[in-house]
């Protein structure tokens, strides 16, 4: 359905005067989502997860420059095609509930999303979709400020799925929600995948994403360090190949709560070699001078010399 190969995003900005500066914010992202799959993108904040979503949809700010390859349904995604297919064939569940129009009633917003996705106006079934996500019928007459956080998230889910999009990109859909609402939203996403859609689930909450994901792609400092099957995240993480993935798994409170010293490098000062080398306990000379290439593993791929 969707594959991303060697995707890099650069931002140009001006320093003092007219001196131009280019910052590489993500480099060499690798990712693939198939029909019927939930692929989770996990990693710390600032690792480039949301940028990936925005690059796929073509909604990065004007000073961004994208290189690399994005394929959707077997054909390359160009800026022109992005305008044509976003909202129709691929849809975004945005991170912030501030993305709802504060002055428009919920029913109208869902109808509008339906029309923009190519459904005729009188064929958008607002009540059906509200009921599907467990929202009462009168939600259609409410304004966003009258909704609780969990309800607003479900409305965002409804606007993204009222059309016929085959790929749904969910950007932190469960952030800040308590257990019951979060697992409810996750099970809706799983259901959509089981109906044949492809789901890209972007989240920093690794343990919750594992409840529904088939594959997990781990991001660190703007790069994909590993793609692994969700089942590899079990026990002590011995089936994970990248030291960062293992560290992330073992840092969960239920798995040992082990910290790793140091912090994620800032994007303008990325290390020359492996991005995790400054914090890794397996670092050898080669890790410091050369970027590790992508190497296939049993469940996906890894970018590490020691895997």
């Amino acid at each position: 359905m969707l594959s991303v190969h060697q995707l890099s995003v650069r931002f140009t900005s001006y320093e003092t005067g007219l001196k131009k500066k280019e910052t590489l914010v993500t480099s060499d992202l690798e990712l693939a989502v198939e029909k019927g799959q939930v692929v989770a993108v996990a990693g710390s904040s600032g690792s480039g997860k949301s940028l990936l979503a925005h690059a796929i949809l073509g909604i990065l700010p004007g000073n961004a420059r994208v290189s690399g390859e994005i394929m959707f349904k077997g054909t390359p995604v160009t800026p022109k095609r992005q305008i044509k297919i976003r909202g129709k064939e691929m849809a975004l569940i945005p991170q912030s509930i501030g993305c709802l129009d504060p002055l428009m009633r919920i029913g109208k917003q869902i109808t509008r999303a339906g029309i923009l996705s190519g459904i005729e106006k009188n064929k958008v079934r607002v009540t059906n979709i509200l009921r599907r996500y467990g929202l009462p019928d009168h939600t259609a007459n409410m304004f966003p400020f009258q909704l609780s956080g969990g309800m607003a998230r479900r409305v965002l889910l409804a606007t993204a799925t009222v059309g016929k999009a085959d790929l749904i990109i969910a950007d932190e859909p469960i952030h800040g929600l308590h257990e019951e609402v979060a697992s409810d939203i996750l099970s809706h996403l799983r259901e959509l995948a089981d109906q044949g859609k492809a789901i890209l689930l972007i989240t920093h909450d690794l343990s919750r994403s594992l409840l529904i994901a088939d594959k997990v792609v781990v991001f660190y400092a703007g790069t994909t360090v590993e793609e692994a099957s969700a089942t590899a995240f079990s026990g002590e993480g011995k089936n994970l190949h990248h030291p960062y993935s293992r560290a992330l798994w073992q840092a969960l409170p239920q798995n040992g709560f082990f910290p790793v010293s140091g912090t994620q490098p800032v994007l303008d000062h990325l290390p020359e070699g492996c991005v995790f080398a400054p914090r890794c306990d397996k670092t050898k000379f080669i890790c410091k001078i050369k970027r590790p290439p992508v190497m296939p593993t049993d469940g996906g791929f890894v970018r590490c010399f020691h895997a």
Partner: peptide, 8 residues
């Protein structure tokens, strides 16, 4: 709002 490693 932090990842597991930073939380730990």
């Amino acid at each position: 709002m932090l990842d597991a490693i930073t939380q730990a």
